[in-house]
Nucleic acid binder design. Structure first.
Length: 758
RNA sequence: GGGCUCAUAGCUCAGUUGGUUAGAGCGUUACAUUGACAUUGUAAAGGUCAGAGGUUCGAAUCCUCUUGGGCCCACCA
């Protein structure tokens, strides 16, 4: 043995050994009770981050612990295509090469991203192995595998058959730069200072940040309790506009805050969420003035073709010239909504695919709420439960279509009866990128075949009829739906997809899975959807428990982000301190699922710990050698020969086993790790080993020591697999030890079995 | 505006239903040690447990308020 522990040696050696031994597969123990975890698939858009490392460490502890205890343990690895995120990352790469997605047709773009993702997937696989994760690689899955896609398609069909799918006009968060719709949870809000313009508006003055949308105004609103405007309610007023005079009705609605601005609001249902909601209440016309590409349309008259911001400038200038601008508040601070890429979100009314989540006949959200309330799905830590239940309670219909190429295409076709109900994006035969109303495009002598062969995107109005591919009639013209599913719709079926629903033996044996372990930030995005869809498809929630770990913050205590430059790269820590130390250090920070600062000191401390137990092992071997001790079975020693130190340590180690079992059963990983650490260092090494040095009965002392030491190695194995395996292999074996590999070898003591497996 | 959460040693954090002198890692100081240990061991210093009030035989722990952080949701034209 080397004088000091070399983590690099151990890390190179043991992973293959474990994998080849077959112990990563549940088949190695077919009679054991199933214990299953589906790895939350890391995004194939890039490398793993420190949060993934924590996630893998926790899940590996759970899996190794159960495997050692005799469960048929299965941990399924995978990668997520991560639709929008990956496409944005890829397009950023393209930009560096001076290209964009418009340089490709759909198929080419999909292929190009596929290649890009393939590289990332391989890197991630390597990192998962390096972490020591005892996953079953034969069951590795990707969210765009044919199998996964077909399950997602089937679910969509089932939903459609149950009338839980509809297309509808809906106010969506549209990004005119990304060319796609985002769900609420994919957005962020940012405080920003913008000018607030006070416009003269017929008999009123009103305040707005967005004067350029005034061409889409279809009403004026005041608060019903506002005495100043009481007499105007219900009346039509004439407004002098930049494109001539027009008339608007004055409505009363509670959404208007009488204290803001002048207490009068222009209502623009097509481009504002509040106004849209009000328009439904008051039956107002919805009049879009912004196009899909973020430019003002024909309703803006002479401003047509200008971008929103240019339009705003021109409109403001003209209002000023026309003496229609009362004043400007330059210091107005408000929240704006941005997409992931940082562009302004444009609220627009567009046709979308929706899942009805609270249908009267077949509610999706009710059972998802109930299973958690009734404790059929337990959430740890418990106080996170309220986040889940509140979210489910408030959940509204789920828009599931995304305008990305990278994803699972919605398997639907539209019959082209009235071309004017289609808006089309395509590349023509001269490689020119074009888009527009299909009727107009056909008038311009583009042929259907040419359009279809260069097709980029189809937007059909909400009332166009659609069919599944099998139901297409010969001789009719169809356009495919080009939208793909929201990734959370497909990953919401991940436990089912990875286990091969409905026929496979895996599904029958391992579903529902034991625990879903992930960061709390995707509790609503992902966990809630899995519960909802899992119950809908199979009748059972996909897991018994949910364990939510906290987010690892940077060394400065802030959230890690590329822009702050405080991102922690796990590679450096693995290189310097070793996988075991990094895993253990991270675990020690996770006590109750709160966010925590990256515990660098502890990583170093556990590197020292690895070295400490290494040298304890060395000491044992040196002594055995020096005193030429024959190792016998602990049971064969007459108990009268034990000293009080022997008896005490044997009693203590049992207690430690019991405590570790109990802590792990409660997902208290830090407690369990700390217990082993303290016992090994400050009881075995500091006390027991010191007295061994002076013992005359070296054989008994060393037999006891070896037994206690190896018991601790086993306890520690789920946390620090590499160093423990290496040491275990150095140690002499007792005849009673069934396996010469740590992986199936949990210490069992009668009083230590009180733990909850599921 | 609604909700969650936190404030404990110089730093990062434990402290599980309220119960003896409040703990760990790192750091600091002193001494010892180079025949297991990139050292390690022994010991020490360091906290009015954010503040105020209350419940209790007893509060870091339960309740109320105050102050100051973090986060989530909603979002104001």
């Amino acid at each position: 043995m080397d004088k000091a522990y070399n983590h690099k040696h151990a890390e190179e050696k043991w992973y293959d050994f474990w994998e080849k031994s077959g112990f990563f597969k549940p088949e190695v123990n077919p009679l054991g009770k199933p214990y299953t975890i589906v790895l939350p698939p890391p995004n194939a858009s890039g490398k793993m981050h420190i949060g993934n490392v924590l996630m893998i460490a926790i899940e590996d502890i759970l899996i190794r612990w159960h495997r050692m205890k005799g469960y048929s343990a299965l941990w399924i690895p995978g990668s997520d295509h991560a639709g929008a995120e990956t496409q944005i990352t890829f397009e950023r790469e393209l930009k560096k090469q001076g290209k964009s997605r418009f340089s490709y047709n759909r198929t080419e773009l999909y292929q190009a991203i596929w290649g890009f993702v393939q590289e990332n997937k391989n890197v991630i696989k390597k990192q998962i192995r390096q972490m020591g994760a005892s996953v079953d690689w034969d069951r590795y899955a990707f969210t765009l595998d044919d199998k996964a896609i077909s399950i997602v398609h089937n679910t969509f069909r089932k939903l459609a058959k149950d009338n839980l799918i509809y297309r509808g006009d809906y106010m969506v968060n549209y990004c005119t730069k990304c060319g796609t719709t985002y769900s609420d949870v994919e957005l962020r809000h940012e405080e920003r200072k913008d000018p607030l313009y006070y416009l003269k508006y017929g008999p009123f003055v009103l305040a707005t940040v967005r004067p350029e949308t005034k061409f889409g105004d279809t009403a004026i609103a005041v608060n019903p309790g506002d005495k100043r405007y009481k007499d105007w309610i219900g009346k039509e007023v004439e407004v002098e506009g930049l494109n001539g005079k027009f008339n608007l009705r004055v409505i009363a609605d509670n959404f208007v805050d009488p204290l803001f601005g002048t207490g009068v609001v222009k209502v623009t249902p097509a481009h504002d969420k509040n106004d849209y909601d009000a328009s439904l209440r008051h039956n107002l016309e919805i009049k879009p003035v912004i196009d899909m590409d973020g430019k003002l349309n024909e309703k803006a008259g002479k401003y047509q073709g200008l971008s929103v911001l240019e339009g705003r400038k021109r409109v403001v200038a003209d209002l000023r010239d026309g003496n229609l601008l009362e004043k400007i508040d330059e210091n107005y601070v408000h929240n704006v909504t941005l997409c992931k890429a940082g562009h302004d979100i444009e609220p627009m009314v567009l046709p979308n695919w929706f899942i009805k989540v609270d249908d009267k006949k077949k509610s999706l959200k009710k059972p998802a709420f109930d299973v958690v309330k009734k404790g059929l799905v337990k959430i740890y830590p418990k106080w996170r439960e309220i986040t889940y239940t509140r979210w489910i309670d408030e959940m509204h219909d789920w828009p599931i279509s995304r305008q990305n190429v990278w994803g699972i295409q919605i398997p639907v076709w539209y019959e082209v009866v009235d071309p004017n109900k289609f808006y089309i994006w395509f590349i023509d035969k001269n490689n020119e990128y074009r888009h527009g109303n299909l009727g107009k495009l056909l008038d311009q002598d583009f042929k259907i075949d040419e359009i279809i062969s260069g097709l980029q995107r189809v937007l059909a109005m909400a009332n166009v009829s659609w069919v599944f591919a099998d139901d297409k009639d010969d001789g009719k013209i169809y356009f495919p739906e080009t939208d793909t599913f929201d990734t959370w719709f497909s990953s919401g079926q991940w436990p089912i997809a990875t286990l091969g629903y409905p026929e496979s033996s895996d599904f029958k044996k391992f579903y529902p899975t034991s625990v879903l372990e992930t960061g709390w930030e995707i509790l609503r995005l992902w966990v809630s959807r899995m519960v909802m869809l899992g119950i809908y498809i199979t009748g059972k929630p996909p897991f018994h428990s949910v364990y939510l770990h906290g987010i690892v913050r940077a060394l400065d205590g802030r959230k890690m982000s590329k822009s702050l430059g405080n991102v922690i790269n796990p590679d450096e820590y693995i290189d310097q301190y070793g996988v075991d130390a990094l895993r253990m250090g991270l675990i020690a920070g996770t006590a109750n699922g709160k966010d925590f600062t990256f515990p660098k000191d502890r990583v170093i401390a556990y590197k020292h710990f690895a070295n400490k137990i290494w040298n304890m092992g060395r000491f044992i071997l040196v002594m055995i050698n020096e005193y030429n001790v024959e190792i016998i079975s602990l049971n064969s020693i007459d108990s009268k020969k034990f000293t009080k130190e022997d008896k005490a340590i044997l009693k203590d180690v049992r207690k430690v086993v019991g405590k570790v079992d109990i802590s792990l059963g409660k997902y208290r990983f830090a407690d369990a790790g700390e217990e082993i650490y303290q016992f090994m260092w400050h009881t075995i090494a500091d006390k027991y080993i010191e007295q061994v040095k002076n013992r005359d009965d070296k054989q008994i002392a060393l037999t006891v020591l070896l037994h206690v030491y190896k018991t601790c190695l086993k306890l520690l194995h789920p946390f620090m697999p590499y160093v423990t395996e290496e040491l275990y292999q150095y140690m002499p074996k007792e005849a009673s030890e069934p396996n010469s590999i740590m992986i199936a070898n949990w210490p069992i003591y009668e009083k230590s079995t009180s733990f909850n497996a599921k």
